[in-house]
Design a binder for these strands. Structure first.
Lengths: 146, 146
DNA sequence: CTGCAAGTTAAAGTTCACTTCAACTCAAGG
DNA sequence: CCTTGAGTTGAAGTGAACTTTAACTTGCAG
């Protein structure tokens, strides 16, 4: 089996055929066509799909994912090094998001103690209004200083 | 200022008035009305809104948030203890999600080394197909054993 | 060959979480 | 009173990420 059909891809990736066609329309994955106009995928497209799903888990939009994938070479099969570069960049995004969730968790823990949870008044969430300039809401959590 | 107008609430919570009305239609927050049919909010509704936004950050749907909030008392102002219970439960959800992201990060780090990222073939992501019964996709990450 | 599962398309539909709009009413200062 | 800013409603619109549908074509086992 050299090239994979859309059915194969769906089975192997756990992503619906309709979603695969959608990803292709959106420029996230690519396929070649048979004489009869059916899609055939190279095996490495599975990696793109894996990357897409992982990024989605992190809460990234398809737009951003497309941008990231655009950094992979167009004319040759991406190498280990290509993927490594991309993965390293995403590891950073992932860690930023983990850090945010950890802040969130710590705030929530704090609030278990103080019983608070008021967006604008809780000093834990928005201490001393020093952050007012950055807009309303729980700024400490969403958009932390430094 | 006993009760807050929708404008006050929007200003204090950083959530648009239209969103507040939407939350109310969806049964996430409540208000009383003035003689002239305008909404008036008790201050503790701000806490609900804070909770909603925090939960959304964690990637929880409004449906699930509604269910969680439904555990708060209907007929009295929630106490510190009420909120503490809810917050404790959510801390657990939060930690589960953080754990997922950490697995994700570790897998991604692993994949920087091995250059892989193939959903069904990478042993790191889906070792030995032992997880096949739980469906396709990167099961180790999304839905880890135990 | 034939039959049928698997694939193709464009267009419309769906869900979520809101926002925008139009037309209207209310509240409060001068 | 009058004006003006704040609030009200239902209905329609938005954007993301897909799914569904209908009508049709391909690929391959028997």
């Amino acid at each position: 089996m050299e090239l994979l059909t859309i059915g194969d891809m769906a089975a192997r990736s756990g992503v619906a055929q309709s979603a695969l066609r959608y990803y292709e329309r959106e420029g996230l994955i690519r396929s070649t066509r048979t004489g009869g106009n059916q899609r055939r995928y190279e095996r490495h497209e599975l990696r793109r799909i894996a990357f897409i799903r992982i990024a989605q888990q992190v809460g990234v939009s398809l737009d951003e994912i497309r941008e990231a994938l655009a950094e992979l070479p167009e004319n040759r099969t991406p190498t280990k090094a290509d993927w490594a570069r991309l993965s390293a960049r995403w590891r950073r995004k992932l860690e930023a998001r983990i850090a945010m969730m950890e802040r969130l968790r710590d705030q929530l823990t704090g609030c278990i103690g103080c019983g608070c949870l008021s967006l604008s008044r809780c000093k834990l969430i928005n201490p001393e209004d020093r952050l007012a300039a950055r807009g309303a809401g729980p700024q400490m959590i969403i958009n932390p200083p430094a």
